[in-house]
Simulated scan of single mutants.
Amino acid sequence: MLDFNPLYSTPQAEAVEGFINQHYPLVAPVSCRLLQRGLNDVYLAVGGDSERYVFRLSHQRARGPADVKTETAFLTHLRQSGVPVAEPILTRDGALFLRGYAPEGAREGVLFRAIDGRKPQGMGAGDALANGKTLALMHNAAETFSPDGALYRLDLEHLLFRPLARIRDGGVVEDADIRNDLEHIAARTAEAIEAFSSLTWTYCHGDCHGFNSRINDAGEAVFFDFDDGGPGYLAYDLSVFLWAQVSFGRSSTAMWDAFIHGYRAVRPITPEDFEAALRFVIVRHFWLMGEYASRAQEWGSEAVGWIAREADFLKTWETERFVDRLF
């Protein structure tokens, strides 16, 4: 019999139900259904008392294993600090995460209490402002958190240079001129960021684009999806929201203004961090392209073909924002 040696498998909902029933003190019986698959597998779990939970099974990624230990420790710290975030649920043994085994290897699982509230509605100004406030509260709380043993640092090596290498070496951009453009854009961006003298370092959410939140009855943005987080540049954490407003043909900088207004209502932003956030839009786009490039064998070349078209967006952002500072 041929062993196909799978890159990625999707556990059946029934298997996840059994896993949760075995390891978590929920009211039985627990029922599950798959919500989404891709960067992670996410399941809705409903206990016998109708309480709702979300079970996230981490994906095998090019960066390495999921840093669920630091992530769940940070979430616990945020909850204790009064920051509205998803709450990880303890196992029967008092652990915040578990490892299960799939054909491709070990995968880390975390169970969260489902967040009450609505999805952000097209990212209106009120929801953008709420996201800015929660991010600022998170950064305030991060000042008293020690990410000892964190597996990843959200520095330029992690966010820019390794993703660039995945694009370059993965064969997803065949045109040599486009590859050269990407190399030059990355080099100029890194040089500009490294020229800043005092960028703030914090613990980052890492994926605060606005839709990794729910808006509760109090109007607060409750954050989830911290699995791309880690110690890193505060300017990068800000930039992800701006990037989400201007990438892939979008143009809603009014939402960026509302987001920044909400952030500044809680916490100041230094001029250097604010200026650097504009540069980090490019870094964020490289990070995303690198994530997709690393999945080419799993998702197929058609699913990552868009990467070869993104040099135009990056060059346009450079030209419009930094034309007098490019060289």
Rank of each mutant, 00 (worst) to 15 (best):
D181N: 05
E183M: 11
I185S: 07
I185D: 15
I185N: 05
A186L: 04
A187N: 10
R188V: 11
T189K: 01
T189E: 03
A190L: 02
E191Q: 15
I193Y: 00
E194R: 09
E194V: 08
A195F: 05
A195E: 10
F196V: 13
F196G: 11
S197P: 11
S198Y: 00
L199D: 03
W201P: 05
W201Q: 11
W201V: 12
W201Y: 13
T202D: 02
Y203E: 02
Y203F: 06
C204V: 01
H205M: 15
H205E: 13
G206N: 14
G206W: 05
G206S: 10
C208V: 09
C208L: 05
G210V: 08
G210L: 14
G210A: 12
N212E: 07
N212D: 11
N212C: 14
N212R: 14
N212I: 09
S213Q: 07
R214M: 13
R214W: 03
I215R: 12
N216G: 06
N216K: 06
N216E: 04
D217M: 06
D217S: 08
D217T: 09
G219T: 06
G219M: 14
E220A: 10
A221R: 01
A221P: 03
V222W: 04
V222L: 11
V222K: 05
F224G: 09
D225K: 07
D225Y: 09
F226T: 02
F226Q: 02
D227Q: 14
D227L: 12
D228K: 15
G229C: 13
G230V: 02
G230C: 01
P231V: 01
Y233C: 09
Y233S: 07
L234R: 11
L234T: 07
A235Q: 11
D237M: 01
D237K: 01
D237N: 10
D237H: 02
L238R: 01
V240N: 10
F241T: 08
W243Y: 15
W243T: 15
W243V: 12
A244M: 10
Q245L: 05
Q245I: 10
Q245T: 04
Q245C: 11
V246F: 13
V246T: 10
S247P: 03
F248T: 03
G249D: 03
